[in-house]
Design a protein around this nucleic acid. Structure first.
Length: 439
DNA sequence: GTCTATGATTACAC
DNA sequence: GTGTAATCATAGAC
């Protein structure tokens, strides 16, 4: 085929609106007669219109003839120009779009998760975060980390493979379309601008597919994270010691089992509520202790009888500690046993929770209203309870100092509960200590 | 497999 | 913000 100008070229000057045609006419290839020009154009258009009615060979011959027609370049340029001024100008306004915020979010997230962007040593920011969350301490989580990292790495690999495929497909398709348009530009007016626009449309289409890929990758990462980090799925029971410490506090403060912030913090420390757990459920250590106390309170209240045995056990333990404290206290700073009060694996927060809280209260800190009396009373109750168990108390005294539902008022609340000494007779409680110990 | 215990979450009230 | 009550979801025992 001939190499005559197929694409529209810009011409600086010429006949207003039709520089190509003007130039063509100026260089003498067109007649000066207006009638002649009209006939030429009409002739070309007529040929174009009838070209589809002809046989292939005939059409090819016609096509060739048209391509070689002296008026063809000029007409082509005119058509291109008209097209540009109409269609392209209408669409031009839509072309410059701001970056899609959704895409930006996805990009940022993938970058943050370490899926997009440069590889970071087989892991990612998220993997590092997960490692910090679950593995900063303890080797028991290392398997989980490697599993997490492996899965994240898998996601990353799939993402990059797919992305590469999309990019390749996009490039191939773009090249194909460009070639097609260039080819078509022999027979219809297609400007470079139009090809550019088409390319950008293709890119947009492909980037929308990419966005879907990014979206599903993000979802996969989220699922992975939730599987590894979600608290419910990964509920871990506290160890025995932690439970004992919490129970000990709970039962020694049964009249008012509402630990202060400081006490919660201290309990969390003592229970070894790890940083990992805190990060895993995205809550503070205090919150975990609060959860425990919340659950304990409600479950205790719902089924006091069931917890009676446990209450007895902890009451005895606390009382033993308390008696030990008082014994040491009577020894007045005996240098031989300075720390014995908090020993034997018991809750040693200032010897016992109640004493700890009492000191706090005596120092002037208000502790959930009426705390001082309640805590001291609780301690006294515990002591009496144990003494009654060992037969050291008279029946009448023991009977008046029931242990179990102390502090729980008729409304089922603790806050406004009467002091334990005034609670009902042990025979009324579903799980009275007295009824257990009187035998 | 079921059942129970229990840590965590949620909706609501204060 | 804290606590309660109900509920969910999992761990562990059987």
């Amino acid at each position: 085929m001939d190499e005559q100008p197929r694409l529209m070229h810009s011409h600086g000057v010429g006949m207003a609106g039709h520089p190509g045609l003007a130039q063509h006419m100026q260089d003498g290839t067109a007649g000066t007669d207006g009638e002649g020009r009209k006939q030429d154009i009409g002739d070309i258009l007529q040929q174009i219109m009838t070209i589809t009615d002809q046989s292939l060979d005939e059409a090819q011959a016609r096509k060739h003839a048209l391509n070689c027609h002296r008026m063809k370049p000029a007409l082509f340029n005119v058509l291109c120009e008209i097209k540009e001024k109409t269609v392209l100008s209408i669409r031009g306004a839509q072309e410059e779009e701001p970056p899609d915020p959704q895409l930006m979010r996805l990009d940022n997230m993938l970058l943050a998760e370490g899926v997009a962007g440069p590889e970071k040593g087989g892991g990612s920011a998220a993997a590092a975060a997960a490692a910090a969350a679950t593995g900063g301490v303890g080797a028991d989580n290392s398997a989980e980390h490697s599993d997490y990292r492996a899965k994240l790495s898998q996601i990353r690999q799939i993402y990059h493979t797919e992305l590469e495929k999309y990019e390749q497909a996009c490039n191939e398709f773009t090249t194909h379309v460009m070639n097609l348009l260039r080819e078509q530009s022999r027979t219809r007016p297609i400007s470079p601008k139009e090809i550019e626009r088409m390319v950008s449309i293709i890119h947009r289409k492909f980037s929308s597919i990419q966005m879907q890929l990014k979206q599903s990758t993000c979802e996969a990462v989220m699922i992975l994270r939730s599987r590894f980090l979600d608290a419910r799925r990964k509920r871990r029971n506290f160890n025995k010691q932690a439970t004992e410490i919490l129970n000990e506090y709970f039962y020694s403060h049964l009249s008012n089992p509402y630990p202060s912030e400081e006490a919660k913090e201290e309990l969390a420390k003592k229970c070894g509520i790890t940083v990992s757990q805190v990060i895993r459920i995205n809550k503070s250590q205090i919150c975990i202790v609060s959860n425990w106390f919340g659950n304990k309170r409600i479950r205790y209240k719902k089924n006091i009888g069931k917890f009676q045995e446990e209450a007895n056990m902890y009451a005895a333990r606390t009382a033993v500690n308390a008696t030990s404290v008082s014994a040491h206290g009577s020894q007045a700073n005996s240098p031989s046993t300075p720390n014995s009060a908090g020993s034997a694996g018991s809750f040693n927060m200032s010897n016992s929770g109640d004493l700890f809280m009492s000191v706090q209260s005596l120092n002037g800190d208000s502790y959930q209203g009426g705390q001082v009396g309640a805590n001291i009373q609780s301690q006294v109750d515990t002591l009496r309870h144990v003494i009654s168990q060992t037969g050291g108390y008279s029946d009448s005294l023991a009977a008046s100092q029931m242990y179990s539902p102390q502090g729980i008022n008729t409304n089922g609340g603790w806050q406004d509960a009467p002091t334990p000494s005034s609670v009902t007779s042990p025979t009324e409680g579903p799980g009275s200590v007295h009824s257990d110990t009187s035998n």
